[in-house]
Design a protein around this nucleic acid. Structure first.
Lengths: 338, 338
DNA sequence: GAAAAAAGTACCCTTTAGACT
DNA sequence: CAGTCTAAAGGGTACTTTTTT
């Protein structure tokens, strides 16, 4: 296998020096048009490909973004990751990805390796636990880093945080269910005492308390399995409950199939609102009402914010809450709803 | 921001030459234990981090694997990608990922960028169309590359192909439905004339033809939306059809909600088998029978095959079909099934 | 004097001042 | 001044040479 050509080969072929070739590669204005053409011809004749490692060594940015996700298999995070990656690609950046599977050990390991690769930035939806040493290493390496969707390190001056405005979403959903006549409303899913759980629950809590209704919560893993289980439990042991707001669509979809199994008609006997509005939610039956966090847009915005940080040196705000809105569908409004 | 220390700084601090530091970093046996300790102490004192770009420049592998996926948001591919990525990470390799969204243009672009980054290997679930130029560029760059889940370039000697044994799965599912007494069985989903569609359909075709039953196919995008639509169509216009095998679980899940909407009891009035056995399929109601392609295991195996290729220089076989098996659940066997 | 350990030194490919025409 | 070129730098690797045992 013959080794690939370098700018030196290109320079020879084009009859110029390698500096000139380098200038052409960078679209420098200070090179004559005819020379540029000679060089470009040589480049395509030789099938030359740019070597970013060598460039990175000399100071240029590596063009690599580290994207670290706590649970890549969860469609909510998949959507975010895919969207951010594509936005980076559009701007010529490559994305090094890692799924940590909620394991701080994995997280620390991949962060270390990515630093070795010289990533220009990190976008992290972090795993909980494991202390701040991973973030400390990033700080030490001086790499621009955003926390997204989960805030684990509270130095937001150092690691800006971007997420959805969950509290507002919870309030909207609660008002919606109350407007439909529900009084006994539960909140289902989300591990106890997790910041994200508290945040997603806060709107519900606020409204229920303000109106003097009692709040009931069923904590648990934000999974389909837990949702299904809780639907069966509620159907058999808490028949007085009229409605639920779920920690995530995954939980709500689990409840949907649990209720189907138990013979409870969702949208009539029980009203349900999810959280995230993943694609699937508009396609199940009954269609799931959900607090829509436009994750595709969010992923794009996060990627853009990071790019303006590393390209134009404009930091994102310490904390940014993206708007959410409530999508009313059959699972709360009833089966006649379109 | 102070620049990060280099092996030269480490060498100074430890009182050795940089060659020795390099040897320590590579765990070379030809360095005295005491020296090794001195060097390692210097490394942690200085907070030195290895610079892989510089290493890669001199010839060592970059430790970067390019993972290119046609539709990362599809849980089937997400599962594969996450699993392969984690296996690579376990062995110290970082994964550069790109979602091409079925666009050969995107695909060509990200392949180009990844070659510039000097990826050591490619694992590609390719987009259809767009000719072979992307693969030609890879060939020219001489980078070991596997096609997975979809074969687009037929030079499998150059680009080995690994996938599931879909044909066998289709046969199993068809026999299963016939054993349950069905005769009018349809195949639903999958774009016409796509190799993957033909492969997933082939087992069904083979068995139906062999037994003298007629085969009916409804082609379309492998999405929930299409599944839902077809369920409604079948319920209203083809009531004679007793069962269906779906191109993917996504389609089957769409049909499930379509039938729920139409009031058809799946597992009794209509028997349904999906393809892929994604996590969700075991959690919906009725639980979905599916041809299980153990994608997590497949992702691991593919990653391992690639690693033995680039590390031990042992090529994977040109074509490899991984075993699949049929998971019987309520949607085909009936609601009494566990 | 041979083997082991450490040091010396090209070289990898590109960028970027600064020199040159 | 415009356009090119020269040469050093950047962080490692690996072959060669020297110094220790």
């Amino acid at each position: 296998m013959k080794k690939r050509p370098t700018i030196l080969d290109v320079a020879d072929k084009a009859g110029v020096s390698k500096s000139t070739v380098s200038l052409v590669l960078q679209n420098s204005p200070s090179v004559r048009q005819s020379t540029r053409e000679d060089v470009n011809r040589a480049i395509s004749d030789l099938g030359y490909v740019y070597n970013r490692s060598a460039a990175g060594l000399r100071g240029a940015s590596s063009g690599l973004i580290g994207l670290i996700i706590n649970d890549l298999r969860n469609p909510f995070f998949t959507e975010f990751a895919a969207s951010a990656q594509m936005e980076f690609a559009r701007k010529g950046y490559s994305t090094v990805i890692a799924n940590t599977d909620e394991d701080p050990g994995n997280q620390a390991q991949v962060i270390g390796t990515m630093i070795e690769h010289g990533v220009s930035a990190f976008v992290i939806s972090p795993a909980y636990g494991g202390g701040d040493n991973a973030f400390d290493r990033i700080e030490h390496a001086g790499i621009p880093t955003m926390q997204v969707l989960r805030q684990v390190d509270n130095r937001t001056g150092l690691f800006p945080f971007a997420t959805h405005n969950y509290a507002a979403g919870g309030e909207m959903a609660t008002h919606h269910l109350i407007d439909l006549g529900c009084r006994k409303i539960a909140f289902v899913g989300g591990l106890k005492d997790r910041p994200i759980t508290n945040e997603r629950m806060s709107g519900y809590r606020t409204v229920m308390t303000a109106l003097g209704y009692s709040a009931t919560t069923f904590h648990g893993r934000p999974s389909r399995a837990f949702g299904r289980e809780m639907a069966l439990t509620i159907a058999s042991e808490h028949p007085e409950i009229e409605a639920a707001i779920c920690f995530s669509d995954l939980v709500a979809l689990g409840m949907l199939s649990g209720f189907a199994e138990a013979g409870v008609k969702v949208g009539e006997d029980f009203r349900l609102v999810g959280f995230d509005d993943i694609e699937e939610s508009s396609l199940v039956y009954p269609r799931l009402s959900s607090i829509r966090c436009d994750t595709e847009l969010f992923g794009q915005s996060a990627a853009q914010a990071m790019l303006t940080w590393i390209v134009d040196d404009i930091r994102p705000p310490d904390v940014k809450h993206h708007d959410v809105n409530l999508i009313e569908r059959q699972s709360s409004v009833g089966p006649d709803h379109e």
